[in-house]
Simulated assay, not measured.
Amino acid sequence: MSPVPPAEYFPYFADATPIGLAHRGGSTYEPNIGRENTVAAFREAVGMGYRYLETDVHATADGRLVAFHDEVLDRVTDGHGAIAELPWSEVSTARINGADAVPLMDELFEAFPQARFNIDIKAPAAVAPLAEAIRRHDALDRVCIGSFSDSRLRAARKALGPRLATSAGPTDVATMRLLPSALSRLLRSPAQALQIPVTHRIGPVTPTIVTRRLVAAAHRLGKHVHVWTIDDADEMHRLLDLGVDGIVSDRIDTLRDVLAERGHPLR
Rank of each mutant, 00 (worst) to 15 (best):
V4A: 06
P6H: 02
F10T: 05
F13D: 14
F13S: 11
P18D: 15
P18F: 13
G20A: 06
A22E: 00
S27I: 01
T28S: 13
N32V: 00
I33F: 13
N37Q: 12
F42E: 00
E44I: 05
E44G: 03
A45S: 11
G47K: 11
M48D: 02
G49R: 01
R51Q: 11
L53V: 12
E54C: 02
H58L: 13
A59K: 03
A59C: 06
D62L: 01
A67W: 02
T77P: 03
P87G: 01
V91Y: 08
S92Q: 05
R95P: 04
F109S: 03
F112Q: 10
F112D: 09
Q114P: 05
R116T: 02
I121P: 09
A126Q: 04
V127L: 06
V127M: 06
L130Q: 11
E132H: 09
H137Y: 02
L140H: 00
R142L: 15
R152D: 14
A155G: 07
R157S: 04
A159Q: 06
L160T: 08
G161F: 11
P162M: 12
A174Y: 00
A174N: 03
M176F: 08
R177C: 08
L178A: 15
S181D: 10
R188T: 12
A191N: 03
Q195M: 15
P197R: 01
G203W: 07
V205Q: 06
P207E: 15
T208P: 10
R213K: 11
H219V: 08
H219S: 10
L221P: 14
H224W: 00
V225N: 04
H226V: 05
H226L: 09
T229F: 02
R238C: 15
T254K: 03
L255R: 00
D257G: 06
V258N: 02
V258Y: 06
